[in-house]
């Protein structure tokens, strides 16, 4: 089972997201990256020789060092990950973030609800849609 890459710097949000995934029986392994460079290391390897192509990236925008938008740009630039489903999961719904996210080819943009029940429901629907209903892109390289 391909892993989910969770890019999230807030440990509380990380725990809540992991909780919501577990609660909704999404059993893919989860790799957590806590800032932009860490996310790129996971995806492309620390020496850029190749990393993990996840089933889905859950991407926060406001991150230390490299922002989520910059991470997304790198994801779309690489032949390995350019078709990987990327769901922006963030606090903001500022127009500039929405625009930048969609322009760079984000597949979804979800604003994290404050209420945990709603948050959990959002994660459930995301998992169901992107990991079950949606047909993933064909493999672009042998795994």
């Amino acid at each position: 089972m391909k892993p989910i890459l969770l890019v999230e710097d807030n440990p509380d949000d990380e725990l809540l997201t992991l909780r919501a995934l577990k609660k909704n029986h999404i059993h893919n392994p989860v790799v957590v990256a806590r800032d932009g460079p860490e996310a790129l290391d996971v995806l492309f390897g620390a020496d850029r020789s190749g990393g993990i192509v996840p089933a889905m990236v859950l991407l926060d925008l406001k991150l230390p060092k490299l922002s989520g938008i910059e991470v997304l740009r790198e994801i779309r630039r690489s032949a390995d990950t350019r078709m990987t489903p990327v769901v922006i999961l963030t606090s903001s719904r500022e127009e500039q973030d929405l625009m930048a996210g969609y322009e760079l080819g984000a597949n979804s943009y979800i604003r994290k609800p404050v209420d945990f029940a709603q948050f959990s429901e959002a994660v459930r629907q995301l998992g169901l849609y992107w990991l079950v209903l949606n047909e993933p892109p064909p493999e672009s390289r042998p795994t």
């Binding site: 807030n10 509380d12 406001k62 606090s91 719904r93 948050f119």
Partner: peptide, 14 residues
């Protein structure tokens, strides 16, 4: 919109 919502999510969530 970013910074004030995050701690609220923790309070409500936990």
């Amino acid at each position: 919109s970013h910074d004030l919502r995050a701690p609220l999510r923790s309070i409500s969530g936990f």
